[in-house]
Design a protein around this nucleic acid. Sequence first.
DNA 1: CGCTTTTGATGACAAATGTCAAATACTTTT
DNA 2: AAAAGTATTTGACATTTGTCATCAAAAGCG
Lengths: 204, 204
Amino acid sequence: MISVNVSDEDRWKMYKNSSPLILVFKQFNPLNEEIENYINKHTFPVSFKKNKFIISPIDRNKFLFLIVKGVVRGYIKDGKTEITTWIAKENEIVGTIRNLWLEGDSEEYLQALEDVELIAIPHALSDYLYENFPEANIVGRKMMEIYYRSAEERAYLCRISSAEKRYKRFLVSFPDLINRVSLKHIASFLAIRLETLSRVRAKM
Amino acid sequence: MISVNVSDEDRWKMYKNSSPLILVFKQFNPLNEEIENYINKHTFPVSFKKNKFIISPIDRNKFLFLIVKGVVRGYIKDGKTEITTWIAKENEIVGTIRNLWLEGDSEEYLQALEDVELIAIPHALSDYLYENFPEANIVGRKMMEIYYRSAEERAYLCRISSAEKRYKRFLVSFPDLINRVSLKHIASFLAIRLETLSRVRAKM
DNA sequence: CGCTTTTGATGACAAATGTCAAATACTTTT
DNA sequence: AAAAGTATTTGACATTTGTCATCAAAAGCG
């Protein structure tokens, strides 16, 4: 379960009249007061310590999360090995989009790679906003376009032929993550072993 | 340039009162008559022979295309090698989404892998629909969610550790493409060499 | 139909990457 | 500061995949 502890309560009060989510949404479209109030009422902050898992199986598919502070990775278990499929930071929204293409096929996990502060966005809220506020669909559509592009970049990145070239592309595409994420996770994201990444870096 | 030849004209007449695009959109949300008319007026069919390129540099970023018939691949040139990043078939919409994350960095091409029939969707039309019809944003948002999932699947697929496992995943995720796409392109999509794919298949 | 081009399969070998083990460097905790 | 736990590097070697050459099969074409 997602636990709301004391410091979360404080943050909740702090954010009460203006969830950081509002600022993100407003980058895409103006919002009226009614929708802002609704968002403020139905989102809440949560925090996780470094290395903790953000979604327990129980809460899977109940929330999306805006990252207010910190870095989060998403990964899928393929037998014993973990495959990191994305790494996200501040002002990005993460979480499993529902209606998985191949449901039940492989489970996705989210893990905090730093102490993180998140805003939880219940899927029930998204549903309500999409149903009742046309502008929510504008915001959602524009954000999905951006997330689609970033997923395409990830799909391209891992098809680059050599470990070295993939790493170089990573440096260009995600320059800010290099110093925040351990090489272990970067290697997993690049679909190479830690030792190979270490050698690629030594050579450069 | 996109050329509209005689048979395209015929198809245009045939589709005049109901672009196949309408049917696709209606799977996501009802459309009123006004928007239907607008779509019918501003989309048009085009066709390409097998192996032809669908977007010339001149027309890059001017259209999306609904695939009515056939298979299309998208690829990016990485030096001399082509990297196939997706393969799409009937009822999917393809084309470069504007506002590339890293613009000018790498060029994306579209190629017909069978004789294809497409409906061209000018970006100007998308813009107009999003501006003037709230339901267009509902349709767009829902479609982008689906395309996002499929991009995530592609990003996951190519991170699977061995050629054989990637191929097996491909068989499960894209069963209908096996018999329509040459192994050359499947190998490129799986980020392995044709010879490797050939050996993986021989072993199975 | 015969010719040419493309596609796919296979062998021999090279190069890249993975695996395992150990050493070193960093962080965190006590 | 010492101890314990991670993170990263490095070496030796195994395995996978790529490369190049060749051949056969299939598809396209006059």
